[in-house]
Amino acid sequence: MTQAFIFYLLAGVTLLSGLMVISARNPVHSVLWLILAFVNAAGLFLVIGAEFLAMLLVIVYVGAVAVLFLFVVMMLDIDFARLRAGVARYLPLGILLGAVLLVEMFLVAGAWTSGAIAKGVRAAPRPEGLSNTQAIGTILYTDYVFVFQAAGMILLTAMVGAIVLTHRERAGVKRQDPARQAARTPVAAIAVVRPQVGAGVETGAGVQ
């Protein structure tokens, strides 16, 4: 009973916050609702006993990805009026996409309850005496280690690509060289000059 209650609570809040993501007037509020949806999804993982995935969802999505979202959205200067103007024009396309997704989800739900693969997965439970974390680690790093490595390489490529696309050399940038700064001594940095009265000091004379 309690489990069902918690499930419906978490699922309800997830759906509600999902709805608020697309209907909130302020984009920052949208992102905050999205974060609430993430946290509730993590709660749903906990309800089915996948505590490792729940923690990863919170750490990776809520703790890192959503912070970057929030960071970017907060700094954007968004014109709400123009954002709203396109709604009517894109509504049919949106409804079409939603319908396609809905049909696909029903198909997936049907396959899950009846398909041979799904039954096979459920017939092979977690090995006895292994926690979730260890079971996932064993599968990921022994059975599927090459696929895992390939996924890592793809992510690395994406990261390098993003850096290459956005990086540009700018002229006239003064860079910090911490090693040089730390190695600077008073002898090298200070020059004691004794100028003649009224003669002044040449700019930069004796000073690095």
Partner: peptide, 25 residues
Amino acid sequence: DINVGLLYLFAVSSLGVYGIIMSGW
């Protein structure tokens, strides 16, 4: 006494940034 205790702590401490970023905004 959960078996992902350290991950839980890490998750909670990474959520802590929201209090600050939300109050700032």
